[in-house]
Amino acid sequence: MNALPQRKPLGHEIPSWVRDGEIYFITICAENRAARPLIQGTIAHNLLESVAYLNDHDQWFARLFLVMPDHVHGLISFRADNSMPRRITAWKSFTTKQFGVKWQDRFFDHRLRRDESLDEKAHYIRMNPVRAGLVDAPEKWPHVLDGYKRLG
């Protein structure tokens, strides 16, 4: 029997040739997705507050960040001197210690390229709760932070 090839995990370090401030589509999943841990109690609000804090302190810039019951999506820019994997790992660690969120080890990132539309990715993220049947319109989902707006 032939063994299947093993997938080699790709690193998340941003190559030196990528311009500072490029936008990344990020997905981070909770460990126990079936339990819907991210919308229990004040967890979603606390996650959004922590994202706003990082925005305010120039650690990253989340243009859009949405909390689903079992994962988060974001459109985030990172400064060249603040590596994406270190910043996300630090955020995950903080939210685990402060709010008890348990995350999967890895995360997904995709750099938006010139031929990709920021608006299309933002629409995809905002429609996520609608596609999941949680609300009938994206503006009804309460667990979202628009980086151009402040939390209410």
Rank of each mutant, 00 (worst) to 15 (best):
A3Y: 11
P5S: 12
R7D: 10
R7V: 13
K8D: 06
H12C: 04
I14G: 02
W17E: 12
V18R: 13
R19A: 15
D20P: 05
Y24K: 07
Y24T: 07
F25K: 01
F25C: 06
I28M: 11
A30T: 01
A30E: 00
N32I: 09
A34Y: 08
Q40S: 11
G41F: 07
G41L: 08
T42Y: 05
L47Y: 00
L48N: 03
L48S: 02
E49S: 11
S50K: 11
S50A: 15
V51K: 01
Y53H: 12
Y53R: 09
N55A: 07
D56N: 13
H57F: 13
D58V: 08
D58Y: 09
H71N: 05
L75Q: 04
R79E: 11
A80N: 12
M84N: 02
P85E: 03
I88W: 03
V101D: 00
W103K: 01
R106M: 07
R106V: 02
H110Y: 10
H110Q: 10
R111N: 05
L112P: 01
R113F: 00
E120Q: 13
Y124M: 05
Y124N: 05
M127F: 09
N128L: 06
R131C: 06
A132Y: 05
A137F: 09
E139S: 11
E139C: 07
W141G: 03
H143N: 12
H143S: 04
V144H: 02
G147M: 07
